[in-house]
Amino acid sequence: MKKLLFIVLFAITFSSCEKDDICSDETTPRLVIEFYQIGDQTVKQNVPNLKVIADGETIPVVLNESATGDSRFLSNSSSIKIPLNLEDTTTKYKFIINSTSTNPLLINEDFLTFNYTLENVYVSRACGYKTIMELNTTDGIIKTDTPLADGFWMQAINIENNSITTENEIHVKIYL
């Protein structure tokens, strides 16, 4: 009888578990940006020593998760992923090209302000909610220069996909 009671209690305990106790779904996505040549807009362009810093911050955004040390904050690729502020509907970043150059004339900073709406979406019991963003149609991205007026290194910006629901698609293309 004790064995039967133990088996019943054991079965009840483990039958209440669900398969989704581990979150394998994507959480809140980051904004995916790809860089292209302005002359031939089908050719991707690597950005040398790109550093991205949120407005009011001093520590750059992690652009290379697999790197170590300071190289985590630099990108020499044609694609980056950056987070948007989930506590506001605006995020401003400073994009610095040639950020490690010893020649100050080669370092160039442009600012991008992203304007969007937020929506919390239920994913699953294990994952909870994720936030998706929708870039505004009229003023989704505003480009400004530094007070030094060093000229824009970003020649043109195109919003490819206003809905930021996944990191598997390009949201913004920037032409150099």
Rank of each mutant, 00 (worst) to 15 (best):
T144A: 09
E87I: 08
F95E: 04
I174F: 01
N46C: 04
F14A: 07
Q41P: 09
V43G: 03
Y93N: 12
K94N: 08
D145S: 12
S79W: 02
P104C: 01
S101T: 02
E57F: 15
T27W: 14
N158T: 15
E26V: 08
Q37A: 07
T138R: 12
L105N: 07
R72N: 08
T100Q: 06
L106W: 04
V121R: 13
V123T: 15
D145C: 05
S75G: 01
V47H: 00
F10T: 05
T90M: 11
T91R: 13
K3R: 03
G151E: 08
L105S: 08
I157W: 02
D21R: 05
V32K: 12
T68P: 00
N46K: 07
V47K: 00
N85P: 03
L74N: 03
P83T: 07
F10W: 05
F95H: 06
T42Q: 05
E18M: 07
T113P: 15
T144Y: 02
S15H: 05
F14N: 13
L84H: 06
A156L: 12
T100K: 06
S163E: 13
T58A: 03
V43W: 01
E34N: 09
V61M: 01
I7N: 06
G56M: 14
K130R: 15
W153G: 03
A126H: 09
L5W: 11
R30T: 10
I141N: 10
M154F: 10
P29M: 09
E18L: 07
T138N: 14
K2M: 02
V62E: 11
I7M: 13
K130A: 12
N162R: 15
G56P: 04
L118R: 14
V121T: 14
H171Q: 08
C127W: 01
V47M: 04
R72E: 12
K44A: 05
E169R: 11
T100A: 02
N46G: 01
N168T: 14
R72V: 09
K2L: 06
T117S: 11
D150P: 00
D25E: 14
F6H: 03
S78Y: 04
P83R: 09
E109H: 04
V43S: 08
W153M: 06
P147V: 01
S75T: 03
W153Q: 06
I170G: 03
I96T: 01
I107P: 00
L176Q: 02
I38D: 08
L74D: 02
E119N: 13
I7T: 11
K3A: 03
Y129L: 13
N162V: 14
N161S: 09
G128T: 11
T89R: 10
E18Q: 13
I170L: 05
I132W: 02
F6L: 10
N162H: 15
K94Q: 14
T90P: 00
L4K: 09
F14L: 15
V62I: 15
K81Q: 15
L106Q: 10
E65Q: 14
A149P: 00
M133N: 12
D40C: 01
T42S: 10
L84A: 06
F95Y: 14
I107R: 01
N64M: 04
M133F: 13
I59R: 13
P147G: 00
S71A: 15
Y175W: 02
D55H: 13
V62P: 08
V62W: 09
L118M: 10
T28R: 06
K51M: 13
L176G: 03
S99Y: 02
Y122H: 06
